[in-house]
Each structure stands twice: as C-alpha cells, then as structure tokens.
Simulated assay, not measured.
Amino acid sequence: MTPTATAVRGGWERGRTELRQSFTNGTELVGHLLWPTLMVIVTVFLRNTSFGGTGFLLGTLVLPSVLGMNAAMSMVSISQQLTADREDGTLLRAKATPNGMVCYLIGKIISVAGGTVVDLAIFLVPSMILVSGLATGSVGSWLTLAWVLVLGLLAALPIGAVLGSMFTSARGQGLLTLPILALVGISGIFYPITALPDWLQWVAQVFPVYWLGLGMRSALLPDSAVSIEIGQSWRHLETIGVLGAWFALGLVVAPIVLRRMARRESGSAVAQRRERALRRIG
C-alpha cells in the first residue's frame, strides 16, 4: 500500500472515530441537538406567516433555506476545530507523522461532514412533519437535495480549513463568525433575496451560502415557488458552476495554506500559546 493510500485509510478511520466520539461526549451531543432544535422552533413559528401576496408560507420557504445555511456553516465548524487543534498541539503531532497532515485533514473533513449530515437530519425530519407545503414525494427531490448537499460541503469545507489556518487561538474565531452571520442575513435564508436591494443580491450570489439555500429550495419546494427567485429560475447550472468554482479554489488554496501553517508549527510555539491561555485563565 502506498504512503498516500495509507494516509487516506488512516484519515477515514480517524474521521469515523471522531464522529463516533462526538455522539458519545455529552457536551458535543448537546451541541448536535441544540442548534437543530432551535431551527425547528424558528421554522414552526414562521409556518403560518405569509410572504406578501404570493400565497406562500414563510415557514415553508425558510425550511430548505435553513438546510442550506447549516451545510454552509460547516466551514465555521471545521475552522474552529482546526484552530483548537493547532492551539493544543494536535496539528504539531500530525505534522511529525509521515503524511500526517493528509491523514488529519481527511479525518477532519469526514467527521465534520458526517456531523453536519446528522444535524441536518435532526432538523429536517420533525420539520417535515410540522411544516406543510413541501414537495418531498418524488425521488428527484431527494436526488437534487443529495447532490446540492455533497457539492455544497465540498465547497464549504476547504474554505473553512483555509479560514481556520488564519487563527492561532480559538478566541479569534469571533472575528470569523460575525461576517458569516452577516452573509447569511443577505443570502435569502430567512427572507427571499428578491426583497433585498439589487446590489446586495449581487454580493450574496458571489458566495456559497446563497447557492446552497437556492439548491435546497429547488429540491424541496413545489415548482410554483420558483416565481419568487431571481430570474424565476432554480438555476441549477449556475449552482453547480458557483459551488464547483469554490470547491476548485479550495482544492488549490487549502493545501498550500495548510502546508505553510504546518511549517510554522513548533513545540515552542505551542508552549507559548499554552502559556498565554493559562495566563488568561489564571
């Protein structure tokens, strides 16, 4: 077996182990349950609210959009985990192992992607029961949801890895969360994007969050709901193009950034960060 194949196999096993541990650790299990539960509550509160004079219920429109948003937020999850592992020396240990960084990155992608899929299921199953008007009766709807989710995760996770490499401390992650939340706010997640000014619509369409929401809406909403979208089209080709472009960019940039970050890691750097953290606590 080649070194690369060994690293891929090791990354797969690492990812499976981390994913299993995240559902047996009390704190992480609460995290898996809390956010989907809050989103279910928000969706239920909106289920009887009409959007203008369109005849569509806002809760029905929001449900698939929230799925897309949560998939996009996987970039924040992997960024936070990478920063925490850098701070406590996990990345340094991975760096010291042959092909350790490849193994580490594959494992992290598998664990974060797996956790995201489970979180989406926790949100989707009760929401489908509580919210009416979804078009979930065809195989095509589920196939569309599947390819949008896979492509969206492939686009989001490398971006998150790049963003995570920019922070040496988990405390700095707040600088990332606020812009992401602002982007969610203009991406048509909780209110149709066509209600926003044209220039904000253009800004939102540059980033994956909008396209993930659009793709999920195309999968789960009836065809008539396309009337409230930009150009009155689900724009599947554009969705593939934008998400694919972000995935390709991540494939090029992420390995370069992570290699440079790993080269800067040393025992003294980890010790200094640990000392600073202890001083903050004490």
Results as ranks from 00 to 15, higher is better:
A84S: 12
R16F: 13
R280F: 13
S187L: 10
S127M: 00
Q81G: 11
R20H: 14
S268T: 15
G115V: 00
L221W: 04
G188D: 06
A277V: 12
P208F: 10
A94N: 04
A248H: 07
Y104S: 11
T97I: 14
S266C: 03
I189K: 02
A248V: 15
S218E: 09
Y104V: 12
D85F: 07
L153W: 06
W12T: 12
A277L: 15
V112I: 12
L134F: 06
Q272C: 10
W246E: 04
L153E: 06
G114F: 01
H236S: 15
A182I: 14
L200Q: 00
A71H: 02
G213K: 04
G89R: 03
A195S: 15
W12N: 02
T54P: 05
E28N: 11
W35Y: 15
A170H: 07
A155E: 02
A135G: 12
W12Q: 01
P98N: 11
E265W: 03
A271T: 14
P98L: 13
G10N: 05
S74A: 15
Q201R: 14
S79F: 03
L157D: 07
L34D: 06
D223T: 13
V40G: 01
W147A: 03
L120H: 06
E13P: 00
A135H: 15
R86T: 14
S77K: 10
N25L: 12
G160H: 13
G59H: 02
Q272L: 14
M73P: 00
I41K: 07
L151T: 01
L124K: 10
I106V: 13
G250Q: 11
V62F: 00
E229M: 13
I240M: 03
F123W: 04
S79R: 10
E28M: 15
T136C: 14
G68Q: 04
I193W: 05
V203C: 08
E229W: 10
T116D: 12
P192E: 08
V62H: 07
V117W: 03
G11H: 02
M166Q: 08
S74V: 09
L124E: 09
D198R: 14
L124P: 09
S111K: 03
T2W: 11
R86G: 15
A277I: 11
L105A: 12
L212N: 07
T60S: 13
W35T: 12
A271S: 13
L134S: 07
L251T: 08
D198M: 10
G160P: 10
I189N: 00
R16L: 15
V44C: 05
T6L: 15
V226S: 15
M39N: 00
I186M: 12
A94I: 06
V118W: 01
G152E: 03
M69Q: 14
Q173G: 03
R264I: 01
G152P: 01
L19G: 01
T6P: 04
N70K: 08
G52M: 11
S165V: 05
R273S: 13
A7S: 04
V102N: 05
